[in-house]
């Protein structure tokens, strides 16, 4: 028989007691014990990245991480971003979440909790990433809807907002602008 474990996890700033079978992954504990269903299960074997959470600020696949192995580490799930932003004196959701919303990067939305956390980690270490940086940082997060373009645009929009840069025109905006200028 598999044993049950009792331990503490620090999730989104709160340390919480957990009682779960020893073989449970971090994803299972987050979803089924702590009710944090924002982290998604897409493949359950580390292929899709939908379960990505941040552990000590680094993206980790929660479906391949034993929950116990995360004891003593700071875990951030998608549910943690907005409260952290509010605690820091901001308004509304995390600016990156707002940019994803604003730029149409959310189609079905299922990959996005993982995607946004991977992107958050990227921006935390690289405030003005190139498209190549983004491709690299997000390569572990499969998106089946967008073709990634609007995800890159969302990250660029968040960067532009923060650094007060002029956002780049999207292809259809450039097309419209060209049409209007020839009129």
């Amino acid at each position: 028989m598999r044993g049950m474990g009792e331990y503490q996890l620090e999730v989104n700033g709160d340390t919480q007691p957990v009682s779960a079978p020893d073989h449970w992954t971090l994803l299972e504990v987050l979803r089924y014990r702590l009710g944090l269903t924002g982290s998604k299960q897409g493949c359950d074997k580390g292929d899709c990245g939908a379960c990505t959470v941040l552990v000590d600020g680094k993206p980790v696949l929660a479906c391949l991480t034993l929950a116990r192995a995360s004891e003593g580490r700071a875990i951030t799930t998608i549910e943690g971003l907005m409260p952290a932003h509010l605690r820091a004196g901001g308004t509304g959701a995390d600016p990156l979440q707002q940019a994803f919303d604003r730029c149409g990067a959310l189609q079905c939305g299922f990959c996005q909790p993982g995607m946004i956390l991977s992107a958050r980690a990227l921006l935390d270490r690289c405030p003005q990433p190139s498209r190549e940086d983004m491709r690299d940082a997000l390569s572990g997060n499969l998106c089946r809807c967008t073709g990634y373009t609007q995800i890159f645009e969302a990250i660029e929009s968040a960067v532009a907002e923060k650094l007060q840069l002029q956002p780049k025109l999207r292809s259809w905006e450039a097309q419209r602008a060209a049409k209007e200028s020839t009129r």
Partner: peptide, 23 residues
């Protein structure tokens, strides 16, 4: 015009409820 979606923020924050999120 470009507008955000009605469910965009719910999806971006993990609040959106998918079938497997129902307990």
């Amino acid at each position: 015009r470009a507008h955000a979606k009605v469910d965009g923020l719910a999806k971006a924050t993990g609040a959106a409820v998918y079938a497997d999120d129902i307990v």
